[in-house]
């Protein structure tokens, strides 16, 4: 029952995020400037996340949750806790993965998918999203948030993804939601909640120890 209520809340929050009418942002440059400025003040970010994976041939969506941590310049930790244990750490150009009893330590260059996703996530949090030359961006806004749509221009990314939608809160200029739409139409949504900005996150979080 608790899970059902949680799913309903999650679906409702996703719906409300996209249901508010977005309009074209008039001064894109001013927003970019402000966004970069605000992001400069974010040294670290910790939040909970809920992920919804939608695959066309599955009747139900795959919903998982966990904890997200980010620390500048490019350290990222995503720890999935439900319904399975999985730890993903990006520490500059290294990726550490802990799944069950396995630990894998690889270079981001050895796995393109990891590289794309982790780079986008880091870019979104650190304000570099507009500097990523692999994507073309458009920006819309409503009363509460900005909707940045990133369309890949690089061929290798185009073969994986159609677009990435990022919703940025107007209150604190952090990412509220990230949606990755694949070429097949399947998509993955990440919703971030209970955010704590500039909380001290120890080095150990990004070493997998």
């Amino acid at each position: 029952m608790k899970n059902f209520a949680f799913c309903l809340l999650f679906i409702f929050s996703c719906y409300s995020c996209f249901s508010q009418t977005y309009k074209v942002l008039e001064d894109k440059e001013a927003f970019q400037k402000l966004y970069i400025e605000k992001a400069k003040n974010i040294v670290s970010l910790e939040s909970k996340f809920v992920q919804e994976k939608s695959i066309s041939f599955l009747e139900k969506k795959l919903i998982s949750e966990g904890t997200f941590q980010f620390r500048k310049p490019s350290m990222l930790r995503m720890e999935y806790t439900k319904p399975f244990q999985y730890l993903f750490i990006l520490n500059n150009d290294r990726v550490i993965i802990k799944s069950n009893s396995h630990e894998t330590n690889i270079s981001t260059n050895s796995n393109k998918v990891f590289k794309i996703i982790s780079q986008i996530t880091v870019d979104c949090v650190s304000g570099n999203v507009f500097n990523n030359k692999n994507f073309k961006s458009t920006i819309l806004e409503n009363n509460d948030s900005y909707l940045i749509t990133l369309v890949p221009s690089a061929t290798d990314i185009k073969s994986i993804m159609n677009e990435i939608k990022v919703i940025i809160s107007k209150a604190d200029y952090t990412v509220v939601k990230l949606e990755m739409v694949e070429t097949s139409g399947d998509f993955t949504i990440l919703v971030f909640k209970d955010k704590e900005i500039n909380k001290t996150i120890p080095d150990a979080s990004f070493t997998g120890k």
Binding site: K53, L58, L62, Y80, V113, M180, E182, D186
Partner: peptide, 23 residues
């Protein structure tokens, strides 16, 4: 994640997707 689905008695569809994103 490896996800499989039976399409009929002699056909299955299997996909492998990254935990965080695309197939």
């Amino acid at each position: 994640l490896l996800i499989y689905k039976k399409l009929n008695d002699s056909t299955y569809r299997a996909i492998i997707t990254s935990e965080m994103g695309p197939k």
